[in-house]
Design a protein around this nucleic acid. Structure first.
Lengths: 211, 211
DNA sequence: CCTACCGATCGGTAGG
DNA sequence: CCTACCGATCGGTAGG
């Protein structure tokens, strides 16, 4: 009879072969991202991640051969998701800056993303950290993107005179990073840091007219 | 005869009693601060700190009963040193902002201080971290100080119209924090982040005339 | 300050 | 995917 098999089901037919493996990998990546964000890469244990997924830690190592491989997969997927979500926006000048504020507003709704980035970037300042290169390269790229947006704003006459894109691009990046630390520390308090509002106020000081 | 005792000396007479203990404590605090800055509190081991001091780890625990007590002592001393070095400056308005730029310039010469602050503040965003309260309180106080300086600048007519001290105080704090991350990541590269220059440029965008 | 030890936990492997 | 295990390391204690 249909539904009667030699192995019990839990309301859903078990996924076969690759599909099941892919789902499990996704579950592990989600869980690893969360724990890396909570306690950092070094202090996170494979056993804890595995337990949260309901498997043993050698079971986890079947999907990702080493802890470093797991970290790399988390970072790669982070980039893939960001690219998919925001890469479409190829806005120019102040429009790109407006998009930036929206990204920050979206991040405030997803603390896991902010925790991961904030905790790992600080941890990875150690030269021998496995994510050191990743973050060093990423900051270089982010600064370059922002410098371009500021230059375009200057061309459009939207930048206040005396504002040097090369000098202020790192400052804008710093504002975003620094606000995240403050928000993570006081987000459960009475007056959490308003990240998008603060970033917008900062950008407005660079522009000839408000965003 | 003078100099001939039952215990050998190493060119210096061994310190007696409290003096020796105080020196050892200072050495442990210096070493702990360095390792906490390198790998964070959680990943730093008492054995590694003790080894760098040339003692066993139970020897270290004789001076600081637990790992948390060691962390607290490191943070307390950090505050004491900061207070001693900069607490004297009770400058007003733009003079306080100028002092801030000088503090950042001094920090760039002492990477250990920056590492400790940067790594521990990110690690302590976890609600159950032993330094969580410390950093949450410290950010609140820093923001309040900066807001006051900005308000004074406004009273003196040095603040650009439309710049709200309550909004921009957290932004200035964010700039200092964020620049530290970037500097720690690229300080050994070809073009390290110029923290004091960037901070000064940022402050100048808030003021009616350059610092 | 030491040696010696405790139970717990770590990343990774063996073998199935 | 599992159990069982490896050597290494953790914070802290016992006892001196």
């Amino acid at each position: 009879m249909a539904g009667v098999t030699s192995t019990p089901t839990t309301g859903q037919e078990p996924l076969r072969g690759y599909a099941k493996g892919r789902l499990r990998r996704e579950e592990i990546l989600d869980t690893a991202r969360a724990l890396f964000g909570e306690v950092g890469y070094r202090s996170a244990s494979l056993r804890e991640i595995a337990a949260r997924c309901g498997i043993s830690h050698p079971g986890l190592l079947h999907h990702f051969p080493t802890k470093e491989a797991l970290l790399e997969a988390v970072l790669v997927r982070r980039d893939a998701v960001s690219e998919e979500r925001f890469g479409v926006i190829r806005a120019r000048g102040t429009a790109a800056l407006r998009a930036l504020v929206e990204i920050v507003a979206a991040n405030a709704a997803e603390p896991g993303e902010v925790e991961l980035y904030c905790v790992l970037s600080a941890e990875s300042t150690a030269p021998d950290h496995p994510a050191h290169r990743y973050f060093a390269d990423r900051y270089t790229a982010t600064r370059a993107n922002l410098e371009r947006s500021l230059r375009e704003a200057a061309e459009d006459g939207d930048l206040r005179p005396g504002v040097d894109p090369a000098v202020h691009a790192p400052v804008v990046v710093a504002v975003m990073d620094g606000l995240q630390v403050q928000w993570l520390l006081d987000r459960d308090g009475p007056t959490p840091t308003d990240m998008p509002a603060a970033l917008r106020a900062h950008l407005d000081t660079l522009l000839t007219h408000p965003l």
